Amino acid sequence: MKIVVIGGTGLIGTKLVAKLTEHGHEAVPAAPSTGVNTITGAGLAEVLKGADAVVDVANSPSFEAGPVMEFFTTSTRNVLDAEDAAGVEHHVGISIVGTERLADNHYFAAKIAQEKLIEGSGIPFSLVHATQFFEFVGGIADEGTWDDGKVHIAPVAWQPIAAEDVAAILGRTAVGTPLNTRIDIAGPDEVRMDEFFRTALAERGDTREVVSDPHARYFGSELTERSLVPLGAATLGQVHYADWYATQAGR
């Protein structure tokens, strides 16, 4: 199969292209660096010629309300229009577990708008909702650090996943029959978010104190007990955080 990966040079995209290639597929990374710009539409028609499926893992360069909404809606419309013209028969999109529960969050609202475009496009689709990635643990801790130098984390359910597992599941989804619905994916272990960060930072030699704060915000949004984890059935990754962290060079 020819599978075009929009955002194919990023964290998930590079892993996905590698996995698809290993399994004998023609995986084509599409990004500005490869001559494809989904905002202007440049290069889309050419890269989608003969494509059987498209996986869109592109991310917005800005998380501010206006720019993030503009990115996801403009990019997605252009991709879907080009897919329709090229006769692509499967669009796979990635989103976030809990988007509908945190619709006040600018980024989540933009992902909801993106999903609606995909669902209404008429192109067979699959939506993969993922929990947060292991790779962003450090950034989340920094985001949660207040002026007191302490990391404020909500004591809620947390089930992060390795980017490697996300790429593997996206790959299996892309080569399969379109689901025309969404699936949730998460890591193999559900833990308390505050306890997770307390342990994870200690393992990194990070001496910041982690404060269990019910009102701590997650990228601007206050959380409820299960805002960030699947509420029902989910496909689970295989990589545990401790095993993943043990493999990280220069940690």
Rank of each mutant, 00 (worst) to 15 (best):
F196W: 15
G13M: 14
S227D: 05
M193Y: 11
I183K: 01
I118F: 00
E222D: 12
E115P: 04
R217M: 12
P32Q: 13
G87V: 01
A45D: 15
T131A: 10
F71K: 04
M1E: 14
G237D: 08
V211S: 13
S212D: 12
A163G: 15
E83A: 10
E115T: 10
A18N: 01
E222F: 06
V210A: 14
G237V: 09
W146N: 10
Q248K: 08
T74H: 02
D147N: 11
S221L: 01
M1V: 08
G250T: 02
A110P: 05
G98R: 07
D147V: 04
S126C: 00
V175D: 09
F219I: 09
V97M: 05
R217V: 12
E222Q: 12
S221C: 11
L80C: 03
A53R: 01
E119I: 02
A174P: 00
A249Q: 13
P178C: 08
V211I: 15
F125R: 01
H215M: 14
F72P: 06
R217E: 15
V92A: 08
D206R: 13
E115W: 07
D165V: 11
G24D: 04
M69C: 02
T173M: 06
T99F: 04
V57K: 03
G250S: 06
M193A: 14
Q248L: 10
I112K: 01
D206I: 09
G220R: 10
A234D: 02
G24E: 07
G171E: 08
V239N: 01
I6E: 01
G205C: 11
D52T: 02
